[in-house]
Design a binder for these strands. Structure first.
Length: 137
DNA sequence: GCCAACGTTGGC
DNA sequence: GCCAACGTTGGC
């Protein structure tokens, strides 16, 4: 089991919309590092859903429903997509400010590589974020 | 709206 | 293959 984090601007595609859709194809990734992360995903991996630009917080958890395949929005075989389905909403969203305030997360991909749209989350980071989400910020 | 960080591109 | 210039992303 691996853990990941994907970012989406709520204007473009929000968690609420994702829940309504019950499933989504994570397309539009045009960055090699992010692409490599998509390729490394396995079915059943858990994926934090983060709202960038507005909200700036981890709002829920998704699950990988289908591993990487050719991005249907382009002919270019360099790019892939995965299918995700919503697993559950966090009881309390965990904000970027909260994570930044804790040195424990200093090495997290989300903090260090702020521009990366699909990044890894370690198991310890994952567990700690789950714990934090159980209490109001 | 600005700016910093980073990735990509293209000239040499 | 290096490096400067440029574009894009995302936090503030």
């Amino acid at each position: 089991m691996q853990y990941w984090l994907v970012k989406s601007e709520p204007f473009k595609y929000s968690w609420e919309q994702f829940v309504k859709d019950k499933k989504t194809t994570w397309d539009g990734v045009r960055n090699y590092t992010a692409r490599n992360n998509l390729r490394a995903m396995e079915k059943g991996d858990q994926v934090f859903f983060y709202h960038s630009n507005e909200g700036l917080e981890i709002v829920g958890i998704a699950e990988v429903a289908k591993t990487a395949y050719q991005d249907p929005t382009t002919e270019d075989t360099n790019w892939v997509v995965v299918d995700l389905k919503p697993l559950k909403k966090l009881p309390n969203a965990v904000s970027l400010a909260t994570l930044k305030a804790d040195p424990f997360f200093a090495e997290m991909a989300l903090i260090k590589l702020s521009r990366l749209s699909v990044g890894p989350v370690t198991e310890v980071e994952y567990k700690r974020i789950i714990e934090m989400s159980k209490k109001p910020a």
